[in-house]
Amino acid sequence: MKKNIALIFAFIGWFALIAQYYLHIENRISSLLEANFRFFTYFTILVNLLVTLYLTSVALKKQGAEDKNIGYLTAITVYITIVGVTYQIILRGTWQPTGLQRIVDELLHSVMPVLTIIFWYLFENKAKVKYSQILKWAIFPIVYLIVILVRGSFSGFYPYPFVDVTALGMTKVLINSLFVTIFFFITSFLYIRIGKALKK
């Protein structure tokens, strides 16, 4: 059952990512090279890619093979929860997509987060996930923030309005980033805590 569910969820993830890439390139306002760089500066894209690759690996894994990456599913579930919540609270009202873009938008920001949470609930080895892993999970979003800020200082492009240094200034962006970081640690703690409670 696990492999079948992973396959279905992975198919949805790949469809959303490929369709979003097509729309991004089709509607680009920059060179093709720059458009490709910008596509992979969106946290939404990177996290959905991580989730989809994980689901694909599960679907293709040999039956009964041991999962040596304990906590990885919880980590990507935390990441995509942040993607979903941030979009619903901060970004949803900033634009009104239509047609295929609306479908893809909902898949990436609403459907995939819910599917990932369901997969985590059903299949994560929750008892073995440790609180000490949270610091390791934080490396990815911290490195991501540094990269987009450094690149933005050269290109002038920032993927999200709350990290736009040009519009907000560095101080405001760092404050916004601090709030997201706090949310990350709280979310990570809650997933581990809830997971252990569910196992009991």
Results as ranks from 00 to 15, higher is better:
residue 93 G to K: 02
residue 128 K to V: 15
residue 86 T to Y: 02
residue 90 I to L: 15
residue 108 L to S: 02
residue 102 R to I: 03
residue 131 Y to Q: 09
residue 87 Y to A: 09
residue 109 H to N: 03
residue 101 Q to G: 04
residue 100 L to D: 00
residue 85 V to F: 08
residue 87 Y to S: 03
residue 117 I to M: 15
residue 95 W to T: 01
residue 112 M to S: 00
residue 117 I to S: 10
residue 92 R to D: 08
residue 133 Q to P: 12
residue 89 I to E: 04
residue 112 M to V: 10
residue 139 I to G: 08
residue 127 A to V: 15
residue 136 K to I: 13
residue 131 Y to F: 15
residue 129 V to M: 11
residue 80 I to V: 15
residue 79 Y to A: 09
residue 119 F to Q: 00
residue 112 M to F: 01
residue 126 K to M: 13
residue 119 F to H: 05
residue 89 I to S: 00
residue 108 L to Y: 05
residue 108 L to V: 06
residue 89 I to A: 04
residue 137 W to R: 13
residue 94 T to Q: 07
residue 130 K to F: 07
residue 105 D to G: 07
residue 92 R to F: 11
residue 95 W to G: 06
residue 141 P to C: 05
residue 90 I to M: 15
residue 108 L to F: 03
residue 97 P to G: 01
residue 94 T to S: 07
residue 82 I to G: 04
residue 102 R to W: 05
residue 88 Q to F: 10
residue 121 Y to N: 05
residue 88 Q to T: 12
residue 92 R to S: 08
residue 94 T to W: 03
residue 126 K to Y: 08
residue 86 T to E: 01
residue 103 I to V: 15
residue 119 F to D: 07
residue 82 I to A: 02
residue 105 D to N: 15
residue 133 Q to T: 12
residue 141 P to I: 10
residue 120 W to S: 11
residue 88 Q to C: 10
residue 108 L to G: 02
residue 95 W to I: 03
residue 137 W to V: 10
residue 89 I to W: 07
residue 107 L to V: 00
residue 86 T to S: 12
residue 138 A to N: 08
residue 131 Y to D: 08
residue 113 P to G: 06
residue 119 F to T: 09
residue 123 F to Y: 15
residue 118 I to M: 10
